[in-house]
Amino acid sequence: MPGETDTPIIEVRDLVKNFGGVRAVAGLDMSIYPGELHCIIGPNGAGKSTLFKLVMGIQRPSAGTIFYQGRNVTRLKPFERARLGLAIKFQAMEVYQELTVFQNLFIPLRRHHRPKQIPEQAAHLLEQLHLAGTEEKLVSNLSHGQQQWLAIGMSMAVRPEVLLLDEPTAGMSPEEVSETARIVKDLNAGGTTIVVIEHDMAFIRNLDSRTSVLHYGKLFAQASFGEIEQNEDVHRIYLGTM
């Protein structure tokens, strides 16, 4: 668990994002620390996915500042942030449907590897993701869960410092959810800072990490998941439906 004296790897200050008259993110202050596995939960419309898009640079904030490793990256483009070490797996399925598994991995792997090194790197990643032997399969022939894992693997292929995972278990079976938790914990144990948005409480409980609760675009609560589960106010706005 990070201490107060650690320098955040990601820090957002007074972050605001308006969509017309709707304020999706409303003056959010939040920090993520190096090496952390951090979960973000909250009701639909709390601003979780918007926060990820702002951090990655997919959307521009209406106000506020985003720091990455102490550097102000608010005005940087997505590819510039990616080159600094940020990676994301969006909520929607983020694989190239018409390509094979190997081709899906080739594109992100090529960022740091020569073409001759890529087959070995791809095989190593697929091994980690329980997708070994699927290199030549068209992605559209994979199961939903396998596609989600591949999407995570593609994000990992660029060797990020920070990986943002938006609902990585959406549509998965309980077994696949459990396996995804293992994959995420393994990646985090390898030194990658991981931030996860999820609605699946069994998955969050399995990760057992520091957890932030967003509500109406603001940080509502932040503690270990055990403490969050016991928080009456969080129950009232969100977990009461468990």
Binding site: P78, F79, A157
Partner: peptide, 11 residues
Amino acid sequence: EDPERTETFGY
């Protein structure tokens, strides 16, 4: 296939 996704790989 997906320009937005490709940009997030640093391209």
